[in-house]
Design a protein around this nucleic acid. Structure first.
Lengths: 196, 196
DNA sequence: AATAAATAAGTAATCACTCACTTAAATTAA
DNA sequence: TTAATTTAAGTGAGTGATTACTTATTTATT
């Protein structure tokens, strides 16, 4: 195989991991199969990542940087809470659909290994989302737009169910998920809860 | 080990599977570890189940018989939809907490193996719940109690997010989940969506 | 020449599962 | 009731396949 910089190979390896998980399942994510998938030797993989676990952790780090980073920007923007809520939800839906392998990876790894480092990382991803969406709710309530009797923590939990339900759908049914009206439909229901 | 009927051993094996999955993760669910956990020889396991996969499938069958069965009884009862909704939600919460290993099993197996039989079974479990909760919504709307402009399918999806969120919480944080007020808190939010 | 990347051929460990055999319990026959 | 026979449950040492990972060596780039 032609020589490439380790950074390029790392990206290739991570992408191949996601591909395999989504198409063949985590069970088939062996270093042998991974190497075959990329077209490189098995030994090369360990030149670019020390362990297989490190590949997973690197992907989880990407999710935190890219996805959670984007959500943070949306949540902290100085704009109408309803607009932010809508963008937050849509960004989530689009990311999950565009990166189908990632959610399966997160689900699987949490339950497959009982690794504490991994679980901690996943908990950060979930609690970050909860925290950020709560901030939007609180801002809207503080601005007098939304019902102040709403329990923000409970509503955040309901909200978190939405992306997770999408994931289950993506995992179990291989058919296309229609994201077109999904965002606005969910927004309608959320806004009804938030209405004073 | 003292001799026991295969039915008794099958139950022991299934319970040990759930224990291991919850405490040690799916990765440690080897037939060797399973045998050690029960205190029997590895060979004995295969006296009572033909394959390891058969153990998993038997557990999934139990979920369909016990859990979905109970939900069906609640959903189809001839009672006030609000009462049924409340019972449906509480039954779900209690079952998930009482059988922590099961949800991790369902999550894991769907994404770990990419087995079609398994996925089909899980899809039945999820879609059954959706169908039954939808029936309760529809009954309440038909009775004129709830908002007829509500999109039942979308609300069912939001509802399904609740038990799944509980699972994520159970998997990621080992601390106790407080089910006490959870039911009534979630009911409040759902009823606000349903209100005319 | 020096360095980084790729490889083939290993490694020990673990996997689900099998096998030949033992033994306890249930069934039948005397 | 007792003795003979059948059946079901349990065992421990194996099976080949696969796992993540290593190492010695070769190859390409600067």
């Amino acid at each position: 195989m032609t020589r490439q910089k380790t950074e390029i190979r790392q990206e290739q390896i991570k992408q191949a991991v996601l591909d395999i998980i989504f198409t063949e399942g985590l069970k088939n994510l062996s270093t042998r199969n991974l190497a075959k998938h990329i077209g490189m030797s098995e030994g090369s993989i360990f030149r670019h990542f020390e362990t297989k676990q490190d590949i997973i952790l690197s992907i989880i780090q990407d999710v935190q940087d890219e996805f959670i980073g984007a959500l943070r920007t949306i949540a902290n923007a100085n704009r109408d809470p309803e607009v932010r809520l809508n963008e937050f939800l849509c960004e989530t839906v689009h990311y999950l659909i565009a990166n189908k392998g990632i959610t399966m990876l997160l689900f699987s790894e949490a339950s497959h290994n009982n690794d504490e480092t991994l679980k901690k990382n996943l908990q950060v991803i979930f609690s970050s989302q909860k925290m950020l969406i709560s901030k939007i709710f609180i801002d809207g309530i503080a601005a007098g737009k939304w019902d102040e009797s709403i329990n923000v923590s409970n509503l955040a939990m309901i909200y978190m169910g939405i992306p997770i339900s999408i994931n289950i759908d993506l995992v179990l049914s291989s058919n296309e998920f229609s994201s077109e009206n999904f965002c606005s439909n969910m927004m309608q229901l959320l806004l009804k809860i938030l209405k004073r």
